[in-house]
Computed example of a mutant assay.
Amino acid sequence: MKETLLEVKNLKKHFQTNKGLLHAVDGVNFEIKKGETLGIVGESGCGKSTTGRVVLRLLEATEGEILFEGTDIRQFNNKQLRDVRKEMQIVFQDPFASLNPRLSLSEIIGEPFEIFNMYKPKEREEKVIELMELVGLSQRLINAYPHELDGGRRQRVGIARALALNPKFIVCDEPVSALDVSIQAQILNLMQDLQERLGLTYMFISHDLSVVKHISNRIAVMYLGKVVEITTSSEVFKNPLHPYTKALLSAIPIPKIGQKRERIILKGDVPSPINPPKGCRFAGRCPYVMDKCRQQDPELIDLGSDHSVACHLVNK
């Protein structure tokens, strides 16, 4: 049995707006074992990226616990938080926006060493070259700038920077969504190879279930700030239980001529995350809605076999 590296309990992140309180993340619970990948999927605005940023304390949580190796990092002071940042890193969605255009690759990848005052100049250059080789970047690019690279190479730079401090845990915030399909496959294969070689643990955020299936051990499905289903990658595709998960799966194209999947077309609009409605967040779009769904918010119940669902239809 693998040890738990990260566990979040009742994690909430609310933003104050002119129209009321925006419930971006609203009571999320999950854990990630050492060496595994937890995929987090859902449509735009469901709170995936906010969850990743709150876990790393790039955004401060409104409520809840973030247990990293058994210790709640929400209680850390600035010095403790600075130390734990070496263990927890992030790869951003847009490799062009996340890289400083005024810095060369050598400066970008070596910046963590400068921030933490690690190594002498000569050693830093050697470490940068090692990292470039590790992620498949040619040494001849060491003095290049981000605008001189294509999207795939830019994302490799972002990955190299994230690996500079030998982290244990990396949040991958839609790291391939801005790339061409062929480049996506290269980056995904690289990340899997790095995970195996370095013993990394990933939280992989994406709106694309087929991408998440390729890289994840377990998948958490989010809807409007809540996790509605969480189970193994294979189980999500074989036996989806939440109506929203079924609808997401039905939208995945089948790459075979003449073969079609029955589409589940959801009617109605996504409720506003500002002062969300009482009861289940999905009730207004669910084809199986009951009176109870509009009154009572379903809890995420463990059904056994590493499968948890938040749905009154399932948890009767």
Rank of each mutant, 00 (worst) to 15 (best):
I129S: 11
P112E: 08
E130F: 05
M222S: 00
L59P: 02
N77S: 13
L188W: 01
I183F: 10
E125Q: 05
F237D: 09
M290K: 11
L209D: 00
N77L: 08
I301T: 10
P255L: 14
E107A: 15
E63L: 06
G27N: 04
L59N: 11
H242T: 13
I40W: 06
L179E: 12
I264G: 07
A247C: 14
V221P: 02
G151P: 03
F116Q: 09
I183Y: 08
G47C: 01
K278I: 09
Q139C: 06
Q75A: 15
V28P: 02
K316E: 12
L209I: 09
N315T: 15
I257H: 13
H207S: 06
V176H: 00
E133W: 07
K213T: 01
D72C: 10
H307N: 00
V28I: 12
K120P: 10
H14Y: 15
V270W: 03
I215N: 08
L58I: 12
L149V: 07
N117D: 15
P273M: 10
T232Y: 00
L241R: 04
K292M: 13
E63M: 10
K120T: 15
P277I: 14
H147W: 11
E262G: 02
K278L: 09
L11C: 10
N29M: 03
R153K: 15
V28F: 04
P271Y: 11
L38G: 00
P287Q: 04
P121D: 14
A251P: 04
L141M: 15
S308R: 05
D291R: 14
A185I: 04
C311L: 08
F92I: 03
N78M: 09
K267P: 11
K122G: 02
E123R: 03
K278Y: 06
P271R: 05
T62W: 05
L303P: 13
K213W: 06
Y223P: 04
M191I: 13
Q80F: 08
V228Q: 07
I170Y: 00
Q259I: 12
T51S: 06
S98K: 07
H214Y: 15
K278T: 10
G151R: 00
D173A: 02
L59F: 14
I265M: 11
E107L: 14
I264E: 13
L58Q: 10
P112V: 03
R102G: 02
V25W: 04
V128K: 05
D173M: 11
G152S: 12
Y244E: 12
I230V: 15
H207P: 09
K86T: 09
E133S: 13
G45K: 01
V309D: 02
L194W: 05
I73Y: 01
G279E: 12
C280Q: 04
L141S: 12
E130Y: 03
L22S: 12
R102I: 04
C46R: 01
L105E: 03
E235S: 14
M88N: 00
T37H: 03
S106A: 09
